[in-house]
Design a protein around this nucleic acid. Structure first.
Lengths: 191, 191
DNA sequence: ACCTGAACACCGTTCAAGT
DNA sequence: ACCTGAACACCGTTCAAGT
């Protein structure tokens, strides 16, 4: 239900939808993913109930805001599936995931929440699909432990993104932590 | 300031202090670390302002509630410093940290918040001291990468605890994720 | 000194009334 | 259909008044 405009939408509704997204993007960037929804509505120049009408939950709003980023990640995953080295492809993608999560404040929290949820989540499904394909290929190539699940992998990667969100030297930190994790993922050469 | 009773405390104040702790422990266990403070005050049979008087912030209350657990972890760290294998000592301790974080709901979040904070935190100092000693010993023994910092280590470990907090098969998950991390921490034998 | 309930502020959610 | 502001509920924080 956080999918596109569905079908026919009144012109003012479309405009409000877009304005809310723009306002939310700015608010999340400035104040983090806990930014007050009333603030966002006010920035967008709409009533608070209108925000709620378009986005029933905060999670829905977060996913919509980060939709471009997530779609970019999915596209990148698709390209990487054609890369020569399955393990390097997976590694590259995970780095991109954390990079996105670090750049776009709130994306990490958004993903983490989506991973955990039981409910319908377009965001989770998309990310899971991308990660699954890359992981499976790396495992079939014998480059990554066969007992690692997509869920575990994403949880860990997002945990890193979360853990470093407020760090002063974010980029440096992310690189090192991710290297640690990726080393742990490697299948031991001696079976 | 989350330290012990300081100095002379009126009898009823001491009793209230204890009752709040007991109530908070139960509330955090049932509802997680976001349990309403008003609920806790009501359970304890005190005014909400009394809770606030004893514990100025939620963080202070969380630390006080988990004080026993944290002290247990510190004691264990001290013992493990005398263990024959520095690397196994570190590994054991980290497992204990996650186990505590998983058992006592809210502890993981509490620690994570403490690690990140700039402010005075008895909790953070104690855990940092324990972790530092064990990590340094393992690094000096050449068993763990020399470029891993205490901060990174604790962030990762707590991220695992956080990431698995709501998992159905928690114990299983924790074990596997921690193994992955610990493998990554190992110094490569070929220098 | 310490406790208390009430007041205040803030924010999410719902609803009756508008167009 | 969709929008709106106001109402309501919830919770954290502060304060004036009590003992």
């Amino acid at each position: 239900m956080t999918r596109p405009p569905a079908r026919p939408m009144r012109a003012d509704a479309v405009r409000n939808y877009e304005r809310i997204l723009t306002a939310a993007r700015a608010a999340f960037a400035e104040q983090g993913s806990q930014a007050p929804l009333d603030d966002i509505a006010q920035r967008a120049g709409v009533g608070n109930a209108t925000l709620y009408r378009h986005f029933p939950t905060r999670q829905a709003l977060l996913e919509a805001v980060h939709r471009d980023h997530i779609e970019a990640l999915c596209r990148q995953a698709k390209e990487l599936l054609a890369a020569p080295s399955p393990s390097e492809a997976l590694m590259s993608w995970l780095k991109a995931v954390v990079a996105q999560g670090s750049t776009a404040r709130g994306l990490a929290a958004s993903l983490m929440a989506a991973i955990g949820t039981q409910e319908e989540s377009w965001c989770r499904d998309a990310v899971f699909a991308s990660a699954s394909a890359l992981l499976a290929r790396a495992q079939q190539a014998g480059a990554v432990r066969p007992d690692v699940t997509v869920r575990q992998l994403l949880k860990l990667v997002n945990a890193i993104a979360l853990a470093t969100e407020t760090e002063p030297d974010r980029d440096e930190q992310v690189g090192r932590l991710l290297d640690l994790l990726l080393d742990g993922l490697r299948a031991t050469s001696t079976s």
